[in-house]
């Protein structure tokens, strides 16, 4: 399996305290563990089981995923920040891998 690739989108600059939209996605097959391959062997469960977004360390949203979340898990939500800072995104894989991404969010001056 190719290494999962995370992607996030949010506005380059935002207004302090005003909610802005955040969209996230990571490439991942989200194997349910219920399927078999062509040779009849079960494909073991392997999903992203947790996703979280922090702003300068403070958790804005955290998500527990079950196997009924679609492949390439996609999440969209809104959040606000009081000042410029770092948005830290983290996806946790069943196999123990953690995929992280950090991006600066800038608050408009004035």
């Amino acid at each position: 399996m190719a290494r999962p690739t995370p992607r996030v989108r949010f506005p380059k600059s935002v207004t302090a305290g005003v909610p802005f939209r955040v969209r996230t996605r990571i490439t991942h097959p989200m194997h349910t563990g219920l399927l078999h391959d062509r040779d009849g062997k079960p494909v073991p469960r392997r999903i992203i089981n947790r996703f979280s977004v922090r702003f300068d360390g403070e958790v804005a949203i955290s998500v527990e995923l079950e196997r009924a979340v679609s492949a390439d898990p996609y999440f969209e939500f809104e959040m606000a920040v009081p000042e410029s800072g770092e948005l830290e995104f983290e996806w946790v894989d069943d196999d123990g891998s953690i995929y992280g991404l950090s991006k600066r969010v800038s608050v408009n001056p004035g």
């Binding site: 804005a60 949203i61 079950e66 009924a68 979340v69 898990p73 996609y74």
Partner: peptide, 25 residues
Amino acid sequence: NPSPGVVVFAFGSLATPAASTRIRL
């Protein structure tokens, strides 16, 4: 579905309590 749970969102004070995703049925 084979199992009932799909997803749980927990919102901190910075987030608006709303979210969108895509699920398997």
